[in-house]
Design a protein around this nucleic acid. Structure first.
Lengths: 134, 134
DNA sequence: CCGCATCCCGTGGGATACTG
DNA sequence: CAGTATCCCACGGGATGCGG
């Protein structure tokens, strides 16, 4: 497996994993990436490590349960690392792994798309709600 | 220094709509885009219009309720159009709008990332579950 | 064939209280 | 500070049946 080129390896993987299939591991991964908080956590860690409470403050509206839960899932998926500093009080830092960092620009692009196209979307909604005449 | 640069304009837009704020319309849009089925529907419509039943077959595991519901939300958001052909039996086609089409490459990139990096993720999970020694 | 309406259950996820 | 542990409700979402 070490002798194949990177391009060949990626082609093989694409053929083997199809997110359209319900049972495919890639579909389950896509579902996890589609989580409400993943994009915000990922982009929040763009500029380097952040403490738990720091993330909690940054991402308004997230409960500590969901923040912890999502961070754990992302850690398990290898997207970020969790570092505990045994001081008083305890300090926990989260930092993107190279894997997580490779996903960052994609998620950041989605987040930015939402921020820059929200006005078009709002207009479309209004047209739809007021019974758009054909 | 009279006219704003592109970078400045984007900064302004970012300031106006911030997905980190819970109440911001951009956050709500991002939440909708993070829906489990949006990326699959969007990429499924990449090559042109598709019929409802066609999408239903393509996207394995989606219930007709969720498919219809998600399609309606995306239609309302202006991401796609719904065209009913009054024949027997009825024919309904969905097609991306220019707005939806502008989002397509971003979502396709996420889907592809999932398909090409699933093996790394699976390895990370295994390492995590077996109590990774450091 | 398309998809709306209804029913209903599982669970996602919030609020609160407690620990190291 | 950074969680874990409970409780509990709302709603996501599946199954079924009907209507255009």
């Amino acid at each position: 497996m070490a002798t194949r080129t990177e391009a060949q390896r990626r082609t093989d993987e694409k053929a083997a994993y199809d997110a359209y299939l319900a049972e495919c591991p890639a579909r389950r991964l896509l579902d996890r990436l589609s989580d409400k908080w993943v994009s915000l956590i990922l982009t929040g860690l763009a500029d380097g490590p952040r403490r738990y409470s720091d993330l909690n403050r940054l991402i308004a509206g997230v409960s500590q349960k969901m923040l912890t839960q999502t961070l754990r899932t992302m850690e398990r998926d290898g997207l970020l690392t969790r570092t505990v500093t045994a001081s008083v009080p305890v300090r926990v830092d989260y930092e993107l792994t190279p894997l997580g960092r490779s996903l960052l620009p994609l998620m950041a692009a989605i987040k930015e798309w939402a921020e820059t196209h929200i006005e078009s979307v709002t207009e479309a909604q209004h047209a739809y709600d007021t019974g758009v005449p054909r």
